[in-house]
Design a protein around this nucleic acid. Structure first.
Lengths: 399, 399
DNA sequence: TTGTCTCCCTTTGGGAGACAA
DNA sequence: TTGTCTCCCAAAGGGAGACAA
């Protein structure tokens, strides 16, 4: 679990929304979940239009139409310089997302790879927080929020237990810097921590239901922050009335193709909780995965998943096939080209296709300093930008 | 004021949203407003990507970025066959919109023009309805809705005045076919029509506020229908977290350009209450305007506007200039290329640019059967599709 | 004719401990 | 340790005529 604090140093939501307030990066990260790992501004990334398109399809609950044209000049991945990352939250739903400005570049050097690698390694440990899935009682109109004991003791300011009953007013800020006041009281038989006055306003204001999660943390000034995470709900059908989904998919491809043709910047939104996979990958992460991992059928691997209450755990799996996810549109793409099976058949909703940078092979444990930093392949003159290098599909030039 | 009943005969919302219910076309029209006039499916239209882009900009409250590339092969207007029109309403906000499937065609014949003209003339008179702007009392938590006397007598089933007080249960359906129940009672001193029980559920369910409008009508089976129209509210900032506005604008242009290049169908959404102007114009309306109206500086004209409470009135104006709205992107476009001044300076929020088909010149009153049906200009061989004809910019071939 | 106010009484729902999982 | 229930009482709000614009 990584903090975006360095990845999005200028984490101010002055993007399209024109918001004024800055988003707290630790709170954003906590809401986004432990698997989300934003690349750092100023580093190189690999952008997968196919994954981007997939996210939009997931957001709209609508598959890509066969009508959407191919962009034959748009490769399945673009090496880009990530100029800018800003953190946002939907003002209506509090859904977190990031806006990234990418500029296609035709090659990278050793220094770019080192910087990307350094950025990955220099991520701060995540800020501590507690996250509770709301119960029916928490969201009912009768009474407040039952605070897990350890959470209250760890995260809330200590109560004055000489009072009878011990109680205090809490002030917490959400992602939009809105202030929420709660009465925190320690009472009942047996004793427990509760949030009473102010809680129901919060629940109705955020339209929370049992199954959604609320999370509290303290920032460096010891101020309380709170965020929400909605239970992944059934087809909300976001079907936009602004643009047809075809036009959206065309827009993604055309914007990327235009940027690639002109080496001009373009903007994407990454929506961690809508999409099955990240589609903007730090260069070092991509490079290591492609270079280090000798993929073969039957290979065993581990992969991280998010648990309830914002934890992580690894599941074991086996590679059962290597093939194009979309052999028509995206031939020879590395986007989720590995077919996999999972050891535990429980909860069979794990994905049956993954990308190589998502997994940790268990057969190759000693790649602490893999040999890829020695690779110096000069850019071949006359080679068109984005043509595939022999192994990587990306052109590295010596510094 | 025209009804979309013939324009959208198959007015079923089975579009992207995947809704099942059919939208009542009369109710949709009443919600859309008296100026909205959908072209009929199966007829020819002129599509203006510039106007489409403008609507998206208005929806997003975001101007087109200079980064958006030009599509040099995309003309400022496309002659299209309108395959399909379906009516929709946003499930969250009840905002009405229409989905149209357009297919670029390279020319039209006399018959197409006649069919378009016939469809314009064969529109049914609009269904009667009443529309009231909600007062503070109507939307307060204390008490119900005060029904204007004439409206209640015209639209609601008659009360049994032998009851004391006279009262009945009303059942009304909204655009989504949801049922709303109201107690309709005639009481108070002096006597008046009121909706009591059920009203506040409707107000909170639709999130209505003073200034929004509610409208009631009866369908051909005498069933009550009700719709809403929201007051044009301040910057709602719909800034999507799915696609950057640049990508959206590129998507519009790329989709239209792709369709034009392949003569393949594409889909647009028309959002009558978001956009300042219609961007899909019935061929006959366009043709008549361009042929009949000799535009000159200083020319006087009238133009229809919508009043409060869903009426119409004409304002007089003068043409003060003829110039490109966007001389860089859309050179020689007819989209809002007329600069105008208005006789009444009151409420100066009238637009200072209009398109020729929006106005009625007052200097040429006798164009009942204009001479354009005699024009038979054979399509010139070797002329690329969409090239501008000498006068019209559209190629007509003899039947 | 109809918008707002105020009064009256029902309904809703915060806030407490009891109790059980 | 914490989720649900029920009880109690305060606050919210629907439904009526009064009154005035």
């Amino acid at each position: 679990m990584k903090s975006p604090a360095n990845g999005a140093a200028a984490a101010v939501t002055n993007g399209e929304g024109g918001e004024k307030k800055s988003i707290n990066p630790e709170l954003w990260q906590a809401c986004a979940g432990p698997l989300v790992n934003l690349p750092a501004a100023g580093t190189h990334v690999v952008y997968f239009p196919q994954g981007h398109s997939e996210q939009v399809a997931a957001s709209l609950k609508k598959d890509v139409n066969a009508q959407v044209p191919n962009y034959p000049n748009l490769p399945s991945k673009l090496l880009c310089l990530l100029h800018n990352v800003t953190l946002h939250a939907d003002p209506e739903t509090d859904e977190v997302y990031a806006q990234m400005t990418l500029q296609p570049v035709s090659s990278f050097d050793k220094d770019a790879l080192l910087r990307s690698d350094l950025a990955l390694k220099s991520n701060k440990p995540p800020t501590e927080f507690f996250c509770k899935i709301l119960t029916a009682s928490d969201t009912s109109t009768h009474g407040g929020f039952s605070v897990p004991r350890r959470a209250a003791e760890k995260t809330f300011p200590p109560l004055d237990f000489s009072m009878q009953p011990p109680a205090q007013e809490l002030v917490a800020r959400d992602l939009h810097d809105n202030v929420w006041n709660f009465r925190h009281i320690y009472r009942g038989q047996p004793k427990r921590h509760l949030l009473t006055t102010g809680w129901s306003l919060f629940v109705s204001g955020k339209r929370l239901f049992a199954g959604d999660s609320v999370l509290f943390m303290r920032d460096e000034k010891q101020q309380l922050l709170l965020g929400i995470r909605r239970a992944s709900r059934q087809p909300t059908n976001l079907s936009s009335s602004v643009l047809s989904s075809d036009s959206m998919h065309i827009g993604i491809l055309a914007a990327a193709a235009h940027a690639a043709a002109n080496n001009s910047p373009f903007t994407v939104f990454y929506n961690p909780r809508a999409s099955p996979s990240e589609f903007v990958i730090p260069l070092a992460k991509y490079y290591k995965a492609v270079y280090s991992n000798q993929i073969s059928l039957g290979m065993r691997f581990r992969m991280m998943f998010e648990t309830e209450e914002s934890g992580t755990r690894r599941y074991m799996g086996t590679i059962t096939g290597i093939s194009d996810l979309d052999p028509v549109r995206w031939k020879n793409s590395q986007w989720r080209n590995l077919q996999v099976g999972w050891d535990e058949s429980t909860a069979g909703e794990r994905r049956n296709r993954v990308s190589i940078w998502e997994i940790e092979p268990v057969t190759a444990p000693f790649f602490i300093c893999p040999p890829f930093f020695r690779s110096k392949r000069p850019r071949q003159p006359g080679m068109p930008a984005y043509s595939r290098g022999p192994c990587l599909g990306l052109v590295m030039i010596s510094a």
